[in-house]
Design a binder for these strands. Structure first.
Lengths: 147, 147
DNA sequence: GTCTGTCGTAACAGTAAGCGTTACGACAGG
DNA sequence: CCTGTCGTAACGCTTACTGTTACGACAGAC
């Protein structure tokens, strides 16, 4: 599986915006978030654009522009983020249709589809059990670096 | 997530070999499996090679060569197959190390690592609950095509 | 000993996704 | 009008997987 860092990066951005706002700032810029994540501001803007479509963040343009949370961190779960940034299913079927004249080729896809549905359902329950509020508190609980 | 069909294809191959052996044949050829899965025999050989490393199948060379199960279908779970063909973790960390001088950049990776470990543990339990014996019986339970 | 069929594996092209970067127009407040 | 930021297109790079061709290795049949 080509492991994906999109969920990690999205959680990073949301936690960063949430903390920044708690420090009294109105909006966060993609540049500030990108500096923390050590990546390019355009990458952040693209990702936050997907979160905006999902109703998790809002953006303001013009002077003093930037990003803000559309919902409280405590009401956003990793499932919300996952659905916003990961379109496809966890496991895929064959690229080409198996031989329908073969018993296995004919029955394998319905069989695996049911199994995968159960597994994805469980994954979604797990993700739904973690709020971004918890992510941020875990982040802040990390041991500080020595001075 | 770039959904992956490797687990599906590996389950297909194992179910095919298992059924073929129950029909009285000694070994299955990569060509026969490939025809059922509608792909190339080399793709099957590569995949079965990984399953052989994991001790799930055996191969014989020379004349009358081919593949056979090293364990009963009932003792092989999707977790065995998953571990054999999917090396990486489900979710990845940032490609580049976040800014360790930033509170979020410093704490995000430990926080997400713990969360991901819990999720993968749950996924593994789900996969471990499905044997290839069940997969094959589900395959055979699929409605037949009209004649 | 030769023939045959299959595995084992290297090599390469094609496809797809994601990331990083540059560029530039759109927007809104000062 | 100027400035800072978003929104988005465009492109190259990397990685992973698939599909294909090719060819040596092997072991049984004869």
């Amino acid at each position: 599986m080509s492991a994906n860092s999109r969920l990690t990066l999205a959680a990073h951005a949301l936690a960063w915006i949430g903390l920044y706002q708690r420090q009294g700032h109105e909006v966060a810029t993609s540049e500030g978030i990108a500096a923390s994540a050590n990546t390019n501001p355009v990458v952040i803007r693209r990702l936050l654009g997907e979160l905006r479509k999902a109703g998790l963040v809002e953006s303001r343009r013009g002077a003093g522009a930037g990003w803000s949370l559309a919902r409280e961190l405590g009401s956003i779960t990793l499932l919300d983020v996952y659905e916003a940034v990961e379109p496809g299913p966890l496991f895929a079927m064959h690229r080409t249709t198996p031989d329908q004249g073969c018993v296995v080729g004919h029955g394998i896809q319905p069989a695996m589809r049911d199994i995968y549905q159960d597994i994805e359902e469980t994954l979604r329950r797990e993700l739904a059990g973690v709020t971004l509020e918890k992510v941020l508190s875990d982040v802040l609980a990390a041991p500080r670096q020595a001075l």
